[in-house]
């Protein structure tokens, strides 16, 4: 329901893949360190300190992490670039205003109305959510669709989300906001093309 590892949109999918890759890499590194640690307890031959410094500090301490981290950083930056809300055709623009403790959603394609607690979007199309707040800091997060973005007083932040298929997705406000924080949830309903048109015409239940 709120699982980041059960993605339902391209952004969440990309990040979930990133997670699994990092988990695999981290597990290997962890195993390596633990093996080295255990091997420290066996009997060993004498060596010289200069050689040890080369092997442990320069090799394992400098070259190894810098290689791994350079690769990871490059991967992370590429993914980050891909998830940016760039201009393009076919983008749907909506607004999300947080206030203690509910969200109000507005639609550029249907300026005449707004919805409370439920955001309607078309499935299969990129949606730019303009996240704002009326009071304290909130955070707009639909884990199965994309990462989170904060609503900061006085600012408008743009988050790109997209649902692959029609359906209902749960969202939460993910920035602590006092006593109402537990139940500060909302829904995102992704419509197929026909229903989306109906929604924009004000024809929804």
């Amino acid at each position: 329901m709120l699982s980041t590892v059960d993605p339902a949109g391209p952004a969440a999918q990309t990040i979930a893949t990133l997670w699994w890759v990092m988990l695999a890499g981290a597990s290997l590194i962890f195993a390596l360190v633990m093996v080295l640690l255990v091997l420290a307890f066996r009997r060993k031959n004498a060596g010289d300190d200069a050689g040890r410094v080369r092997a442990w500090i320069v090799g394992l301490g400098l070259v190894f992490p810098m290689t791994v981290l350079a690769a990871l950083l490059a991967y992370g930056l590429i993914v980050g670039e891909r998830l940016l809300p760039r201009e393009g055709p076919d983008i749907v623009k909506v607004g999300a205003e947080g206030r203690l403790s509910a969200w109000t959603f507005t639609y550029e394609d249907a300026p005449s109305f707004s919805t409370d607690g439920t955001l309607h979007i078309p499935a299969g199309r990129p949606v730019d959510v303009a996240v704002t707040t009326a009071d304290v800091i909130h955070s707009f997060w639909v884990p199965r669709l994309a990462g989170k973005l904060d609503a900061i007083p006085g600012r408008t932040n743009i988050l790109r989300i997209e649902a692959d298929e029609a359906g209902t997705y749960t969202g939460v406000s993910a920035e602590f906001s006092g006593t109402g924080y537990d139940s500060f949830t909302f829904y995102v309903i992704a419509h197929d093309a026909a229903n989306w048109d109906a929604f924009l015409n004000g024809d929804f239940e």
Binding site: T4, I15, F30, L69, P143, G147, K148, A174
Partner: peptide, 30 residues
Amino acid sequence: LLGFFFTFVIGGLTGVMVAVVPFDWQAHDT
């Protein structure tokens, strides 16, 4: 100290994970 190695290495590795911006967008505040 062995407890330190086992625990801190995991913490360091997850730390590198959250240093990667897109992953942090999901993991942040969870």
